[in-house]
């Protein structure tokens, strides 16, 4: 090999310089290690499940209880009431049968089915389209089946809104704070430019409380529980009643069941 003293010295110098900056690179690498709190754990009181699911007992609902359910959700999550319908934020809302269950009704439905609105919300699908299309993993599915939003990561591309076949997602076209007089400090509001939706009250389950809408029901209009637990209220209701789900033909496997 044709090497001279000169090239040897050059390489030796470069190596020495490399060693000299090692402490600096070490320090940089140190900073990248996050101080994960090793003690981080769910709250002792947290409600856990294999798969969370909800049963909506449509017949039990009254005008009053529909209002109460929606109001409880709005209060629990600082959801603004925006007069402009195009900017509306919806977590749980009223929909008519023909719109909620297109193709599932016949020509001659009883009037209490066709004319009374029913409550619809995010279905927390088993194979959620919104999660598949989200480019930033801002929306994801937890092990217990809840389809969650991480608003910190949402870039507002609205792919999830295009993906969701149920219209369960709303985009913040404007700052929601303008429409909230007294936001509850225990739950964040959202900011302009993110998508939001029902989270099955993950923040309440984490401290051992049932979802706000379920708690607002006086007569068991909404049932919430673990699909994998045969003794849960949801499993019992599903065994005892014929239930339907929204747009089952799409294969998203919704986990919100309706007793019509």
């Amino acid at each position: 090999m044709d090497s001279t003293r000169r090239t040897f010295l050059k390489i030796a110098g470069a190596c020495a310089a490399g060693l000299a900056v090692k402490p600096a690179t070490d320090a940089l690498a140190m900073d990248l290690v996050l101080p994960t709190p090793k003690s981080a754990a769910p709250d002792a009181a947290a409600l856990r499940a294999g798969k969370w699911a909800m049963v909506v007992d449509v017949k039990k609902f009254t005008e009053e209880s529909r209002q109460a359910v929606a109001a409880a959700c709005r209060a629990a999550h600082n959801i603004p009431e925006i007069p402009n319908e195009k900017h509306e934020i919806k977590w749980i809302w009223e929909e008519h049968f023909e719109n909620a269950f297109p193709g599932q009704g016949g020509e001659h439905l009883p009037p209490e089915v066709s004319r009374t609105p029913l409550m619809v919300l995010c279905n927390h699908c088993e194979s959620p389209a919104c999660v598949r299309v989200c480019p930033t993993k801002a929306t994801f599915q937890r092990a217990d089946g809840i389809v969650m939003m991480d608003y910190h990561r949402c870039i507002g591309c609205r792919f999830c809104m295009a993906g969701c076949p149920y219209g369960s997602r709303s985009f913040n076209f404007e700052d929601p704070r303008k429409y909230l007089e007294n936001p509850d400090p225990n739950y964040p509001t959202r900011t302009k430019g993110v998508v939001e939706k029902c989270n099955f009250c993950a923040e309440r389950l984490a401290i051992g409380q049932l979802p706000a809408c379920v708690e607002a029901c006086q007569n068991g209009e909404l049932l919430f529980g673990d699909l994998e637990d045969p003794s849960s209220v949801v499993s019992q209701a599903l065994r005892a009643n014929f239930t339907i789900r929204r747009k089952p033909e799409l294969g998203t496997q919704p986990k919100v069941y309706y007793i019509i």
Partner: peptide
């Protein structure tokens, strides 16, 4: 850094408390 880690723990892993 703590806040960032808390966010991940709470939102992603449903861990609620740390000591």
């Amino acid at each position: 850094v703590i806040l960032n880690e808390w966010r991940t723990a709470d939102v992603r892993r449903a861990d609620y408390t740390a000591s």
